[in-house]
Simulated scan of single mutants.
Amino acid sequence: MKGPPIVTKALAERLEQSEIDYMTSRVNAIREREGNPMGAEVRRFGDASAFYVREMPWGSFNTVKGIRTEDIEYIDDIIAFFRERNRSFQFEITPANSSNELLGYLSDRGFRHHGFHTSLYGVPSLEEPVYSSGITIRELKADEFELYGQLHCVGTGLSPDGAGYVADNNRILFDRPGWRFYIGFVDDQPAGVAVMHMYNGAASFTFAATVPAFRGRGLQTAFLHQRCYDAARAQCDLIVSQAAYASTSQNNMERAGLRIGYTKAHFYHNTI
């Protein structure tokens, strides 16, 4: 992988836009299921995108991305949007679009900083990936989403009872433009899954998880290199990924050649 470009405000905004693009595609796909059983909505407020999924109460599916100082006039409308749905939510603030005025306004409305999340970036590579011994990776087949759901849940610590819901909410992306799903094997045993979304030349590594019993064998690194290679073959010029700050995932990404673009702050209000 050749060296990534230096961070500029324009690059940081492109990284954030790639997150908005994949999240918009994902939540709209959930919304378009017959009868919208998950209660999914995407709403624009100025440059900010608000995401809400009734049956997914956690922060990543009830969040606001792309907010900037120029959108302060919409913040009360955003709060009303989530209050009408009786849902707490978070604002994701990037350094490129932060300001004392914006942070002060959120503080005045009762929002408090409650965490950081790292966004990383790199340049795709046409160098064919070489896996550690015993590892194989291929794209997921259309009839394998039940297995995907199981690996997703076990790999992230979710209850196996939720595998069917995970399968349903990812199966709808299979034929949607830009999405690719991968399954990884360790010693011929299904061991993990990974996902990539490509749009406007940016390849977002949106998810990856390994079953605990197979961790430490190099599967996550293999997923990273495989997606870098596939992104290059698809004519992408940028790869983007996210991870908890200083986590094993972030460490793996940096070892694979990705750099930190920014660490965004989450602002949350739990009494909406």
Rank of each mutant, 00 (worst) to 15 (best):
M1A: 12
T8P: 02
E19H: 04
T24V: 04
S25T: 01
S25R: 00
S25A: 15
N28E: 06
N28G: 05
E32L: 07
E34M: 04
A40W: 02
V42D: 01
A48Y: 04
Y52Q: 11
V53S: 04
E55R: 13
G59S: 14
N62H: 03
V64A: 13
K65N: 09
I67L: 12
R68S: 14
D71W: 11
Y74C: 05
D77G: 03
I78P: 08
F81L: 10
E84M: 10
E92A: 15
S99L: 08
N100K: 09
L106S: 10
L106M: 15
G110S: 08
H114Y: 14
H114W: 10
F116D: 15
T118H: 02
P124Y: 00
E127V: 15
V130F: 11
I135Y: 11
T136Y: 05
R138N: 14
L140W: 04
G149N: 08
C153H: 07
A163I: 09
R171C: 07
R176W: 06
R180K: 14
R180N: 10
F181C: 03
G184I: 01
A202W: 00
T206N: 08
A208R: 02
A208H: 00
G218L: 05
F223M: 05
R227I: 03
R227C: 03
Q235I: 08
D237N: 04
D237F: 13
Q242G: 09
A244N: 10
N251H: 13
M253Q: 13
R255T: 12
R255I: 13
A256V: 06
A265I: 14
A265M: 12
H266F: 07
H269K: 15
T271Y: 14
